[in-house]
């Protein structure tokens, strides 16, 4: 564990809590892509199956259980409890165009051709693009609430911090996982346009609005 990973994990945790608090306080999931949230639940469910096969640390297990359960809770809140507020008309990204190619790629490019390893690879690839339905939805509506912007900034920062963690681990531990690094870079690049808007608008007290 190094400082970049710890802050990265905390940022990821903060993002999930921010999203749940926003939904709970406003009794609404307006502006949130249910498709992205389903993809994140799929990411955690396919990645953390090793909860049953290997033990790393209490921290590791607790975080995994937290991520799986909160992602399921988020999907439940969006599609059941607060379904009336879900903006499905604007959540029209075709997720099969992500899941199918990513599934194929996980079969072809992986560290080891075994079920758990392929599922882990699938989850790494899927996570890198899982935010696309959310970004697509924002570009369709042309706006984002400030709390949604904070959520996305924390979520995007998490993988960017992991890149620094991988640089650190490469130099000091000789650890290097090409699949995670490439996917993590792709994931972070997808957020760059949003990061720019966040820094130039949200941090100056303005909402994110996009030109039509």
């Amino acid at each position: 564990m190094n400082i970049f990973r710890l802050i990265g994990d905390m940022s990821h945790l903060l993002a999930i809590i921010l999203l749940l608090l926003k939904m709970w306080k406003t009794r609404s999931c307006a502006g949130i892509s249910g498709k992205s949230q389903i993809l994140f639940a799929l990411v955690f469910a396919s990645r953390y199956l090793d909860l049953f096969t290997s033990f790393v640390s209490v921290y590791n297990s607790v975080m995994k259980i937290f991520f799986i359960s909160t992602s399921l809770l988020t999907v439940y809140l969006m599609y059941f409890k607060f379904r009336a507020t879900y903006d499905s008309n604007h959540d029209t990204f075709r997720v099969e165009f992500l899941v199918i190619p990513v599934g194929g790629l996980a079969f072809l490019v992986n560290h080891e051709f075994s079920p758990l390893e392929i599922l882990w690879t699938f989850s790494i690839y899927l996570e890198s693009v899982a935010i696309l339905p959310q970004l697509f939805m924002m570009s369709k509506t042309g706006e984002a609430e400030t709390i949604t912007s904070h959520y996305l900034f924390a979520l995007g920062s998490y993988r960017a911090l992991y890149i620094l963690n991988w640089v650190y681990r490469y130099y000091f531990e000789g650890f290097f996982d090409l699949i995670a690094v490439v996917a993590g870079c792709v994931q972070t690049i997808l957020y760059c346009d949003f990061f720019y808007l966040y820094i130039t608008k949200v941090l100056k007290g303005k909402r994110i609005t996009l030109p039509a």
């Binding site: 994990d9 990821h12 290997s54 790393v56 590791n60 975080m63 882990w120 992991y162 290097f176």
Partner: peptide, 10 residues
């Protein structure tokens, strides 16, 4: 490429 069987990252 070195990789851990046991994945310690989240």
């Amino acid at each position: 490429i070195k990789k851990d069987k046991k994945k310690d990252e989240l």
